[in-house]
C-alpha cells in the first residue's frame, strides 16, 4: 500500500511543471532619433554653431535591454535590437520611429531600464552567420570583417564649416569593437500594465555633438572615427555621449 502511494506521489510530482510559465503582457517601446528635441530628418540643414550640417545615416545596435525592479530583480526583455532610423525606402526624409513590441513582459512598476549600446561582447565574438535569418545580428552589412566586430553605431552626414553653401565636409562616425560597448542605466518609473501605453526611447543627436563642457564637437578636426581597431578614441567619445543623449519617455 505504501509502495503504491509512493508510486502515485512520484507520478504526480513528475507531472508538476518545474517552472511556472512566464505570464506577461505585450510591452511597446518606440524608438526615435531627434535633433535638439525634434524628430530627425535626413538631408535637412541643422545649425552646428555657426555652420550648417545634415545627416544621411543613423543606425545602431542595442543589447540586453533590461527592466529593473525596485527589489533588485531584473527582467531582460531583449538580447539584441537593430535600429535603422534612416532607411532608404521612402519618399520622406523624416527619420522613422521603429516600434518594437516585447512579449510576455511581467506587469508591474519598474524603477528603471538598463540598455547596452552596441552588441554585447558575447554576441560580438560571433558573426552574422551564427544567427538565424531575420534576426538583428544576422545583418551582415553592419558587420565589419576587418574588426571582427559589428558596427555598433553609424552616424554619417555632411557639413559646411566654411559656410560657402557647399557641404563638402563629410563626416562618418562608425563605432564598433568591444572597448566601446557601453551599458547605461536610466532610472525612470516604468509602468508595465495592460492598457497602459509603452515607453519611448529617444536619442538626441545634437547631444552626441556636444562636449561635456557644453561646447560643440569640432567636426573638421575629427571628421571620422578611426579605422584602426587600436584607436577607438573618437568612437568611444560618441558611444559615451549616448548616456546623455538618451531619454526615456513615458
Amino acid at each position: 500500500m505504501l509502495l503504491l502511494a509512493l508510486v502515485i506521489l512520484a507520478g504526480l510530482s513528475g507531472c508538476d511543471p518545474k517552472e511556472e510559465p512566464i505570464s506577461g503582457i505585450d510591452f511597446d517601446v518606440t524608438f526615435k532619433a531627434t535633433y535638439d528635441g525634434t524628430q530627425l530628418e535626413k538631408n535637412k540643414d541643422y545649425m552646428h554653431g555657426g555652420y550648417p550640417l545634415l545627416f544621411v545615416r543613423y543606425r545602431m545596435y542595442l543589447s540586453d535591454i533590461t527592466l529593473l525592479k525596485a527589489d533588485g530583480g531584473e527582467v531582460k526583455i531583449s538580447e539584441a535590437e537593430y535600429l535603422d532610423f534612416t532607411p532608404d525606402s521612402g519618399a520622406s526624409d523624416m527619420s522613422v520611429t521603429p516600434k518594437i513590441t516585447f512579449k510576455n513582459v511581467p506587469e508591474g512598476m519598474y524603477n528603471g531600464i538598463r540598455v547596452g549600446f552596441g552588441v554585447n561582447p558575447v554576441n560580438n565574438a560571433k558573426q552574422p552567420s551564427d544567427f538565424a535569418d531575420g534576426t538583428p545580428l544576422n545583418i551582415e552589412t553592419d558587420y565589419w570583417l576587418g574588426w571582427k566586430s559589428y558596427i555598433f553605431m553609424v552616424l554619417d552626414g555632411k557639413a559646411d564649416p566654411d559656410v560657402d553653401g557647399i557641404k563638402n565636409l563629410a563626416f562618418s562616425y562608425h563605432c564598433g569593437s568591444d572597448p566601446v560597448y557601453k551599458i547605461f542605466t536610466f532610472n525612470e518609473h516604468i509602468h508595465v500594465e495592460q492598457g497602459h501605453q509603452g515607453i519611448g526611447i529617444e536619442f538626441d543627436i545634437r547631444k552626441l555633438f556636444t562636449n561635456a563642457d557644453g561646447s560643440l564637437y569640432d567636426i573638421p578636426i575629427n571628421p571620422a572615427s578611426s579605422n584602426s581597431v587600436n584607436d577607438t578614441r573618437v568612437a568611444n567619445e560618441f558611444m559615451s555621449k549616448l548616456a546623455n543623449a538618451t531619454t526615456i519617455k513615458q
Binding site: E140, T141, D142, Y143, W144, L145, G146, H174
Partner: peptide
C-alpha cells in the same frame, strides 16, 4: 566596404 560590406 562601406557600400560593399559583409561576406557577400
Amino acid at each position: 566596404f562601406h557600400c560593399h560590406g559583409g561576406l557577400t
